[in-house]
Amino acid sequence: MLQYSFMQNAVLVSVFISILCPSIGIFLVLRRYSMIGDTLSHASLAGVTLGLLAGQNPILGAFVFTSICGALIEFLRNYFKKYTDLILTIVLSLSVGTAITIISSGKLKANADSFLFGSILTVTQFDMIMVLVLSIISVLTLIILYHQMLYIAYDEEAARVAGVRVKLINYVFSILVASAISVSIRIVGVLVLSSMIALPVATALQLGKGFRVTLIFSIVFSMVDIMTGLFVSYYLNVAPGGFTALVSVAVLVVVLVGKTVQARLRARRAA
């Protein structure tokens, strides 16, 4: 099956997804922002439809529109300090409204459905270039801003005392989220994207380790989820997004059960 070039593309993109999504997701989850992932993945659907409408690459459209929405969320946060969920509802309305209006108008020549559920077959050459460029830039930015972002998530006041430009980095971060989402929508699909961002992190958090180890395990779990989802969906001939989400829930359950069993065993040994 790897002899097919579409499958090779899909595997390569999946590797990037499984690095990017949890690396961004860990900061979202720890800042209690994981719903931003959900909102922005809906924004990316609006971006896809806008891109298709304008005759541009849909992933490019998704990246631009999602970045704008991410920056908008960051900007509105100054006005609705205690009601961040309200901001998400505003941006969600804007995005879903745009997407539904465009799709239902029948003006799109291409099909936007594959972006909802995810698809292996549709990764084009230009998509591949977009994914590579976005991924490499994002990973480099993550490496450079690792300590700053860690501290903004962990202890924002301490970050400010240490001279971190919190506002600026928050804007950069929202573009990173947009980038991770745009890279992922082709294969994973809009509907389950937020599970790719949150679930591997949720699983890794169960291990109760430090930040670096948690991040590494999130990437490992994410890789397991996506690769299993990809190959099984190929054989079952179903959309990869859905199956990946199922696998990620299964992995979380296995880890939770394993943790409980281990705790019981330890208690019995101690008794």
Binding site: L30, Y146, H147, L150, A153, Y154, K209, G210, F211, R212
Partner: peptide
Amino acid sequence: FPITVYEALDS
């Protein structure tokens, strides 16, 4: 927050 003492100081 999953962070060790060493990580908190090192970052």
